[in-house]
Design a protein around this nucleic acid. Structure first.
Lengths: 130, 130
DNA sequence: ATTTTTGTACTATATAACTAATACAATATA
DNA sequence: TATATTGTATTAGTTATATAGTACAAAAAT
């Protein structure tokens, strides 16, 4: 379960706020594998936006294999995060690490600093089966 | 020194490609502190875009204190990465680490995996004075 | 002091992004 | 088999983004 909330200021599009909250919900363990998300209509009503805005968020996450959706029944958290081959996983890992280090270095942080902070971070997830 | 290149396909805006290449140039050590970047006009001619496109990239990096620019003389790599107070630095470090871990977890990577890959990464920078 | 070089500001335009209204289609349920 | 529930598709309108053309302003160089 997760409590969706939209911030109209700040400039971040509604659909992206929803995407981020779902991603963080998974990463933090608040959304479990197989769990059903609110229907596009119910969440649209709750957040006072059009149902297409919700559908757009769900769709993007479905393309990433984060969600699993069937017309008629609903949208669910997919089993094992994003599905990639071993080569793709390794390449993706290198990509996101390089991107992250570039940002960190540009801010003046050292590799040791970021690793220490990562180890200190208590964000955890419920999907790992590596 | 750095060799700018623009990819018209791929959808990434020209000005953002320039920003990314400068950031990576700094993170990789190919751009040194105090080094002058090409003038907005010369780079615009070289890349066959309008000078405002270059100016927009330089401007965004100047706001982040990554570049230092003076009308009449040119644009230069600023001394010490982004300038922040200790509190701001710590907060920023936590922010980017949380963001990074969320992405990593969503892809199914464990904290150990990303730390191992970070340690394995040989990207280095020339700005650290921590 | 004049000219050249450098970044800046203003304006316009085309494209993309975002959100909504509403109709459609597939599945589940009574 | 109807009907309700769920996601999907189409269309439209508004706003934001990206880029360019051109004029302006500040600093350096002569």
């Amino acid at each position: 379960m997760i409590n969706f909330i939209l911030d109209p200021s700040g400039g971040t599009p509604f659909y992206r706020q929803i995407i981020d909250q779902i991603k963080f919900g998974i990463a933090s363990g608040n959304l479990k594998t197989g769990e059903q998300l609110p229907t596009v209509r119910s969440l649209a009503v709750q957040l006072k936006v059009n149902l297409n805005t919700i559908a757009k968020a769900y769709k993007e996450l479905e393309i990433l294999s984060i969600l699993d959706t069937q017309q008629g029944s609903g949208t669910f958290i997919n089993a094992n995060g994003i599905v990639l081959s071993d080569e793709e996983k390794q390449s993706k890992l290198q990509d996101i690490c390089k991107e992250f280090l570039t940002v960190a270095y540009t801010y003046g942080f050292s590799k040791e600093e970021v690793i220490a902070e990562l180890q200190n971070n208590n964000l955890n997830n419920n999907l790992n089966n590596n």
